[in-house]
Design a protein around this nucleic acid. Structure first.
Lengths: 224, 224
DNA sequence: CGCCATCTCCCCTGATTAGGGTAGGGCCCG
DNA sequence: CGGGCCCTACCCTAATCAGGGGAGATGGCG
């Protein structure tokens, strides 16, 4: 996993420039990217589009891009929906996805569907360039924060092992799984709501979840 | 299910007064109940206690009560724990349980364990009297609010039928079941968080649940 | 053409949760 | 006897959720 924030290695411009397509709905950012990337000797911008639909049209008329910089938060067909379509149309293409927030959920969807890289929009321009070069060298460029999340995602599922819980925590857990609120659990277990809350916090730590929804969602899918 | 709020029917005092036991930890309320109930010609207060332990002691020394008015929110052994003990010791006794809140969870536990009636502490004194008389006539006295809950509990489970949902609502439901928050669901489904919220509200209405916890809890137990 | 359902988004309020502390008392163990 | 764990309970803040409105844009249907 290449670190984009490392300085770009001084590479000689390749014999033939990399054919690049940009899709970005925000006109300002699109102009900025175009201005910067298209003037790099390593790149040859074959398409600059404001939407997936536009990209699809333009593809007919141009040389096939080798790398697509694809915004995910697009109006019309979202970048996410576009991914499989593009991959089908251009099986060899490398797609680097970019979005405003560090949106883990979309990130996974994107990577599952075949994106090769993931950039945050806050990234500095040289990072864009580095990402494109990196992906052409077989890398998987992603911003630091993104990389951390991806790693975390592949670490073995923290198991949700009720065995690690103390007796009282298990009592509380059972109440939660029955759909009780903290007040109700407190009433059933005859303890103060604040104590239930303490147990809940400890349960979350031990089971590595961050919300009631996550806990129950996983319980619902049998992970308990 | 007798309605306690109906005026007490003018009954002649029974040949032998009903032997009554009171258990109530709050001294003020205990005094009030004692003052009122024990002066009714229909009643004979054999025990007035401030705790289950005290009641158990006093039972040795007195005539066996026919009806016990039992507070649930007791320090020491809770009224809930006391129920089976008392039933075992005095198999014939009728127990009327009382508590401050309209606490559905405890209510069910109490009724399952053999309580014959359920009063809210906010009840006016004549209601207490009516409850005792009612239970001796084979009734199951309970405050209005309580009765409604009990009825609701025995109505067939409102099914949690995802079929009643619209397409978009089902989308949102799936996100919830995966443990996503409303923001995350909004991101995945590309709609505003407020829209997700609207769908969630509608889902709750249609599936007859009142919280995320209840929904997921039931999903966890396969009711979906 | 109106009517109705759906989907979208917003406003508001109040209740509940999430997550960070601190803290005392009981209990066991080296 | 000090240290660690558990249970209990409270403080705090910020975020989220629950539930009540209203409102505009579709699209079908009688």
């Amino acid at each position: 996993m290449t670190d984009l924030l490392a300085p770009t290695p001084p590479l000689a411009a390749p014999a033939t420039p990399i054919r690049l397509a940009l899709v970005e709905d925000d006109a300002r950012l699109r102009a900025l990217l175009k201005e910067y990337l298209c003037h790099q000797p390593e790149f040859n911008c074959v398409v600059v589009a404001g939407s997936v639909e536009e990209l699809l049209d333009e593809l007919e008329l141009s040389l096939p891009p080798q790398v697509i910089l694809l915004d995910i938060g697009l109006p019309g067909m979202s970048g996410l929906d576009a991914l499989p379509v593009l991959k089908k149309r251009l099986p060899e293409v490398e797609i680097i996805v970019q979005t405003v927030f560090d949106d883990v959920d979309r990130l996974y969807q994107a990577l599952r569907t075949g994106a090769s890289g993931y950039l945050l929009k806050s990234s500095p321009l040289p990072e864009y360039k580095a990402a494109v070069l990196d992906v052409m060298r077989g890398g998987a460029p992603m911003s630091r924060a993104v990389a951390r999340k991806v790693l975390a995602h592949f670490t073995p599922v923290p198991s949700l092992d009720a065995a690690a819980l103390t007796d009282r925590e298990r009592d509380v857990l059972n109440c939660l799984v029955e759909g009780l609120g903290e007040k109700q659990a407190a009433a059933r277990l005859t303890m103060a709501p604040s104590t239930v809350h303490t147990h809940v916090k400890n349960i979350y730590k031990k089971l590595q979840v961050g919300s009631r929804g996550e806990l129950l969602g996983r319980a619902a899918r049998g992970e308990l």
